[in-house]
Design a protein around this nucleic acid. Sequence first.
DNA 1: CTAATTGATACCCGTGCGGTATCGATGCGC
DNA 2: GCGCATCGATACCGCACGGGTATCAATTAG
Lengths: 274, 274
Amino acid sequence: METRELRYFVAVAEELHFGRAALRLGIAQPPLSRAIGQLERRLGVTLLERTSRTVALTEAGTVLLREGRAALDAVAAAERRTRRAALGAAELVLVTKAGASSELLPRLLDAYAAEPGSVAVDVVLCGIGQQEGLLRDGRADVALLHLPFDSTAGLDFEELGTERQVLVLPAGHPAAARESLTMAEAISVPGLPPPRWPGSDGPGPEIRDHAQLLQLIALGRASAVLPASVRSQLRPELTTVPVVDAPPVTTVIAWPPHSRSRPLALLIRTATRL
Amino acid sequence: METRELRYFVAVAEELHFGRAALRLGIAQPPLSRAIGQLERRLGVTLLERTSRTVALTEAGTVLLREGRAALDAVAAAERRTRRAALGAAELVLVTKAGASSELLPRLLDAYAAEPGSVAVDVVLCGIGQQEGLLRDGRADVALLHLPFDSTAGLDFEELGTERQVLVLPAGHPAAARESLTMAEAISVPGLPPPRWPGSDGPGPEIRDHAQLLQLIALGRASAVLPASVRSQLRPELTTVPVVDAPPVTTVIAWPPHSRSRPLALLIRTATRL
DNA sequence: CTAATTGATACCCGTGCGGTATCGATGCGC
DNA sequence: GCGCATCGATACCGCACGGGTATCAATTAG
């Protein structure tokens, strides 16, 4: 199977429409129909059920969509990492959620920079849930993740530390006076609904990163249960209340398997020793 | 980057010889040279240093070899899993080292078969260190691994249990009378050298799986430190002595990320409940 | 019943992949 | 030192295949 065929199939499978998929791919519709047909014939598998009005994935098509995306990511990662390796510009790209790990990250960067043999670290801040994608397709080398929110599926990782969670809310709110809260109480604070995380549907604005989230809380429009370390970066108008039964959050440093370059290994070792 | 280009590059990078690589690929040498040249030009990267007598990998080439193999595995996995999904023959392929987990595996298979909604499980026994490859390229769905010997790099896994290690040796040997041994003593038992594991070099025969290993020990030609559960399958002429300071062995059930099909999830759940 | 939409088919053209023949460079034997 | 063998690169050629346009066939909305 060629990557071109995979790209074509993934486009059609995502659009469920040959015309739109062809447009997205920058080719005409007939060659696309033919390519998919050839792919199906070569695999001996029906990937799409199509009438002249609708296109639907078969069981096998669903599998190929998932696996094909992963394969395309792997190819893209190979290309990106090769290019970066050739630049000789030995540097690491570290990705973390904007607004998260604000306490740990500077310490890590300082400690790493002080190590002999360390290289430049490019810090990329991204939205929630995007880190794994960046690692998988080679745009990043290493990430700080927070279990159990982020998934380490397909990644190697080391635990860096665990912290309890607190409810973040405006200082003036009645609930701010409480000594502690339960999870049930925290998610039902009057007037301060929990934010809508990406992927979930529902009313209200969807937040994209921690900075947005804190702003939303400061506006008195939401509250959120977050790792205790956010306290170090809170503006004075925000306060926190411990949530006793919230699951503890584990910060981990994660990297793609089979990629422990020397600078990366050093960074990981530095992180675990903090 | 097309998979064809990746296949070509990996072949040359492994052979370090255009002629042999072309032979292996079933094409002539000139098109191969051209293809590699085009790939380098498109990437803007020198992958191979070549004189008219030698071919050597550059730094970037080393990266592309590693990443390219992973990407090709991912593509192969996509193809295999799609074909299998289309057969509709819902079945799982479980892979484990021949001779290992001989106690756990039957219990797991029995318990799983008794679950409603379980599917046929195809058990594949392979040599040491081959399981991860089978998982990565889609020939298997799930594996039983033994930490710290096997690597879980790039795999999801759940721990199933931990056991101590024992030295396995012929019953008649003087050391068999000992109550316990240290690791240092175990690997230097007179006349019974530890076997040569795949990947390491040295004198003596290289063993490929646990069955071979046990036979070698029965012949009085070797001894080995193995998980305590081997005792359940030892022939009477073999005996064991606890090794007090050997690292404990953890048996894990591992699977490729993003592939928790319903039957697989059930198998994993069954395993963790054993 | 007609028109619009959408995927499949027919046909043509040009790129590019693979083949053979050959060159140029390098190392080795005599 | 000279010829020879080895090996990668280059030149050139033919054809397969990917992509384009035009059109058909099937389905559905109005």
